[in-house]
Amino acid sequence: MMERPILNTQLDSKTFKEFYYLKEELVNFCRENNLPTSGGKIELTERIAYFLDTGKVLPPTKTKRKASNITVITKDTEIENNFVCSETHRAFFKEQIGSSFSFNVAFQKWLKSNAGKTYRDAIDVYYKILEEKKNSKVKKIDRQFEYNTYIRDFFANNKEKNLDDAIKCWKYKKQLQGHNKYEKSDLVALK
């Protein structure tokens, strides 16, 4: 097995993508090579891989969103295109749902993909999302949160272990070439 290489311009994109790098390392590489530093880990990884392959700069894909100019929201107001979570939206939902309201990821995704539906629909969906979360044993963790996924899977297979054990195994795993999913063989890090 190959040790994790230092992230520099001598690395090929295939090898680069087979190892885990912290977002901080990706941002530093981008700064050192005059690449845009905006975006999440997935976007930075794609930008760096493109640069390693071509020597060219892949511009950021996300554009700045225009702030919402909605000042008053009612249950019958339609959800606007390019929905952006704002303090106006937060205040509306807290008034309708209660102080426990928060913009969870599933709800934000629903709002952003359901322009034209009403805020009444959104409130109904919010309660359904909460109910699904309560009834679901395994919560889906988005791809960019590899550490969280690893720790969850570690404890699902090692209930008798502690967080220090999980972190030791994670540190071992992220140095290896290939995927960063938990495997029983990672327990070798505890010996």
Rank of each mutant, 00 (worst) to 15 (best):
D153M: 05
T63S: 06
V125K: 12
I97A: 03
L35R: 10
A106S: 13
K62N: 07
V57I: 14
N28T: 12
D142Q: 08
V57Q: 09
D164A: 14
K171S: 11
Y119Q: 04
Q175L: 14
K133P: 01
P59T: 08
G116W: 12
R143S: 11
A166M: 08
K23T: 05
A189P: 11
K161P: 03
S99M: 10
K134Q: 13
N148K: 15
F19E: 00
R152D: 13
I97H: 04
S38A: 11
F101Q: 00
N33H: 15
I129K: 09
L7A: 00
L35M: 08
L187M: 15
A91R: 11
D153R: 12
A67I: 05
I151K: 01
D153P: 02
H179G: 09
N158K: 08
R120T: 04
N157H: 10
A49S: 15
W110V: 02
V57T: 14
L7V: 00
L176E: 05
A49D: 12
E132W: 04
F103Y: 13
K133S: 09
K112M: 13
G116D: 08
D164L: 13
A189L: 10
L130G: 06
L176N: 06
K56E: 15
K75G: 03
K62Y: 09
I123F: 13
L163C: 03
D124T: 14
K75P: 03
S38P: 02
S136H: 00
Y147R: 10
W110A: 03
R65Q: 11
S113A: 13
V105Y: 07
L44S: 07
